[in-house]
Write a protein that binds this DNA or RNA. Structure first.
Lengths: 206, 206
DNA sequence: GCGAAAGTTTGCCGGAGCTGAAAGTTCTCC
DNA sequence: GGAGAACTTTCAGCTCCGGCAAACTTTCGC
């Protein structure tokens, strides 16, 4: 018999789940890109992915999440990386380097991420959703950072750094999509973080 | 005859509108503070404010906005102030000083704003809404800032500065509420902006 | 292999958010 | 004080979303 040893570790059930999730997210992105957020219903998305609309809600708590929340880039890994950065690295630089892996995975899934960001740009109601997707991450990140720099958890610095780097990263993502991935996301994030580290000085008009 | 010259400029109708809006927002905040976001319906809010639930939606596009969006602090004024700051002031400092008036108005309405922030803190689903409330402002701000520092509108700096200062301001607001207004919002915002200007260095453990 | 257990999909149903239209009420302005 | 504008209400209807229990599929123990 022809067997698939590669599939041994992860069972058929889980693969199917991933497929369904993927099909739903893809269908949602495609339809919304075509028609706009308001003119696509959950029913249509589900039909395009060949499942019932009830099933849609087994995967995503709401319509928007199918567009914005991406399981493939899970924040847990980012937080693990952040915890692994040697403690002598300053916090801002530590965040930047922990982002590297996430950025790589996003660039590997380039097409989908660019489409996602374009959809978000054209449907501003989704922008807050992008924040929502990161809000839990930011909370945990705040605690991690407090430990790293050795201040009490209610000190202003960790929360500020988490919020600000989140904003900077989103800003870079939008810029990435704005010129259709012409410059690498990694470069754009670097540029943003360098500007942060420099204290946000006015750019020089040469 | 006893007349009310004070009421001459703004008619009864407008005052009633303001009252209704206020009653709705207050009722919403109070009920949600008591029971949590999920356990309060628009119908209950409307009943508490003595209007039909259809009227609720004439004032607020959705439930969350009654809790978060505050007419009394309109962003147009902030943008005007920003445009008025002398051009030789660096952009980051300009934003800080344009925020002053908004901060004053928030501190004047202290009780309500603290309650609002507590409600947001306890119902994290609202946090993205807080971002949504500022998203249009940030867009305009980006254009203003581009003009101010003399770079093309697609330069990364203006968008980054708008996003980052927005995040810093939200962070300060949450902190303000976290210790129940013990320190003035103005101080907390100053602290955040100073940290930004310094390039987010790790705080020194003395 | 095979049958039970565990997990998934689905239809059905109901509550809640939100919108448009039409009718009724209140305010404004002349 | 009356015509008309502005606001509120009632009502009907759509979509979102979650709970439930029945049907189905995959996995596991033997």
């Amino acid at each position: 018999m022809i067997e698939q040893p590669a599939a041994q570790t992860v069972g058929l059930r889980d693969r199917k789940k991933q497929q369904t999730r993927d099909a739903l997210a893809t269908a949602a992105l495609r339809l919304v890109a075509e028609r706009g957020l308001e003119h696509v219903t959950v029913e249509e998305i589900s039909a395009a992915a060949d499942v019932s609309s009830r099933t849609f809600f087994n995967y995503f708590p709401c319509k928007d999440d199918a567009l914005v929340a991406d399981h493939s880039v899970d924040s847990a890994r980012f937080l693990t990386r952040l915890a692994q950065v040697p403690p002598e690295v300053p916090a801002l630089a530590a965040v930047r380097s922990a982002l590297a892996e996430m950025i790589d995975r996003m660039q590997a899934d380039r097409e989908r991420w660019l489409l996602r960001m374009v959809v978000i740009e054209r449907n501003p109601a989704l922008l807050p959703r992008l924040v929502a997707a990161g809000v839990e991450t930011e909370r945990t990140m705040t605690e991690l950072l407090a430990g790293r720099v050795g201040v009490p958890p209610d000190h202003h610095f960790p929360a500020l750094l988490a919020a600000v780097t989140g904003a900077a990263f989103r800003s870079a993502m939008l810029r990435w999509a704005a010129d259709d991935g012409a410059r690498s996301l990694s470069d754009l994030v670097d540029e943003a973080f360098e500007t942060l580290a420099a204290g946000l000085p006015d750019p020089q008009a040469p």
